[in-house]
């Protein structure tokens, strides 16, 4: 499996990372280098092996259904690049 320029375009878009045209080929090459290296995992027989889902065996702890007041709106918005009257603001979504 090899990554080409178009694949880089696709995953960069999925990742929401803008890329200059002239950076696409070099990135494809870098990623291919890494992928070629990780593909040695193909040598390992994993027939019938369960994938690891957590680094420790334990049961999922659960929380009681008790609501606390939300974060004060001012605190919540304090780090926001743009806020307006209690809302976070983003460029207009065009559907």
């Amino acid at each position: 499996m090899s990554i080409d320029r178009d694949t880089v375009v696709r995953i960069a878009r999925l990742s929401r990372i803008a890329m200059e045209e002239d950076a696409l080929e070099p990135m494809a090459e870098e990623l291919n280098g890494i992928l070629a290296w990780v593909e040695q995992l193909g040598e390992v027989d994993t027939e019938g092996v369960e994938p690891m889902t957590g680094a420790i065996a334990a049961t999922l702890p659960q929380r009681d259904d008790a609501a606390q007041a939300g974060t004060p709106t001012d605190d919540l918005l304090a780090n926001a690049p743009e806020a307006d009257d209690g809302f976070f603001v983003v460029p207009r979504v065009v559907e």
Partner: peptide, 17 residues
């Protein structure tokens, strides 16, 4: 999270970190 679920609150007033 432990933020409340009530409907119709002021914007961003029922939001946990």
């Amino acid at each position: 999270s432990d933020a409340p679920t009530a409907f119709g609150a002021a914007p961003n007033s029922q939001v946990s970190l």
